[in-house]
Amino acid sequence: MRVSMLNLYSNNLQSLQQSTVDISKLNQMMASGKSILRPSDDPIGSVKVINSQRDMAATNQYINNTESLSTSFGRAETYMSSMVELQNRMREISVAANNGSLSPEDRAAYAAEMSELLEAFADTVNAKDEGGNYLFSGNLTDTAPIAKDASGNYVYQGDTNHREVQTSGSSWMTANSTAAEFIFANGSADILNQTKDFIAVLEDPTLAPGDPLFSQTATDMLTSLDDTLTSISSAITDIGGKQNTLSLIQTAHEERVLFNEEVIGETEGLDYAQATAEFNLKLTTLKVTQQTFVQVSQLSLFNHI
């Protein structure tokens, strides 16, 4: 009789403890919205969730890279477009100033405006991003790409290196253009020093259109403008193509993130209706078990006499 009563007592206590554990687990699941609280709940599902989370983290990093790269390209394109606008005005002045009917004062006025355009152009080439890094100096982002040497000539101070940014698991994209490429790598003289020389000719009252030095400098100016405009336009076109590619890559990454979110949701997401029904059932079972346990714990040998 003692053995039977002890077994009955132990079974009820064990059932009571198990129901309490089950209800606690269901509470955690409903609070977190997850059906897998620990790997042992579903080893295969847990591995699938971990793999999806890892892939999603990498993909989100690629999305951040493409967004940052797109912003950088947009900023560079804006400054390059400003360079084109400045050079368009330089061309207008170069053509207008090569007119024999102008007075020395007229040419001096054009020289003054050209000086302002040259200064604005150099400042634009020395543009920085929001972090204070120079955009067009290669990897020497803390060094202004354009400066003047002891002789007053414009020189390039950056390097010709390019930064590569990873945009997917298997692809990288060049992130920057250098002033060395679109200003100092043309067949003609660079636009900065050529403009400086043309200004000097315009300011010289002894020189006028028709003089060999004036004519040659004016011709060289237009040639330099053509070459530089071609280089900068090519850089802008390249940026446009990269922006289109980034847009496609980012769309693909965003779809991949959504896919991983769906996999994770389907694998560990909780069916609240089913969980609620199970919770109510477990709660009822716990109440019954508690009542039974109370009754069993009060039994003794004298109750059976």
Score class of each variant (00 low, 15 high):
152 G>L: 01
136 F>S: 06
141 T>C: 03
95 V>K: 06
139 N>H: 11
94 S>N: 05
118 L>Y: 06
123 D>F: 07
129 D>T: 14
134 Y>C: 02
152 G>C: 00
145 P>Y: 15
112 A>I: 09
126 N>K: 13
113 E>I: 03
141 T>I: 12
132 G>P: 01
114 M>R: 06
103 S>Q: 03
146 I>F: 11
113 E>C: 15
121 F>V: 11
149 D>H: 10
147 A>Q: 14
104 P>V: 01
134 Y>R: 01
143 T>K: 12
109 A>K: 08
152 G>E: 00
125 V>C: 08
120 A>P: 03
115 S>N: 06
104 P>R: 02
145 P>D: 14
115 S>K: 05
112 A>L: 11
104 P>T: 00
124 T>Y: 11
93 I>A: 07
103 S>G: 08
94 S>E: 03
129 D>C: 10
108 A>H: 09
125 V>H: 01
122 A>Q: 08
121 F>C: 11
152 G>D: 03
135 L>K: 06
97 A>P: 09
149 D>S: 09
143 T>E: 03
152 G>H: 03
109 A>S: 15
138 G>L: 06
99 N>P: 00
103 S>Y: 00
136 F>C: 01
124 T>G: 06
146 I>M: 14
143 T>P: 01
148 K>R: 14
119 E>R: 10
132 G>A: 02
127 A>E: 12
137 S>K: 11
123 D>V: 05
106 D>N: 14
136 F>W: 00
100 G>M: 07
125 V>W: 02
134 Y>I: 01
127 A>M: 15
127 A>F: 15
123 D>Y: 10
119 E>I: 14
101 S>K: 05
151 S>Q: 15
93 I>G: 06
98 N>C: 04
107 R>C: 10
147 A>D: 12
125 V>M: 12
93 I>F: 07
129 D>N: 14
146 I>N: 09
102 L>K: 07
122 A>P: 05
113 E>S: 06
149 D>Y: 13
141 T>G: 02
109 A>I: 13
151 S>C: 08
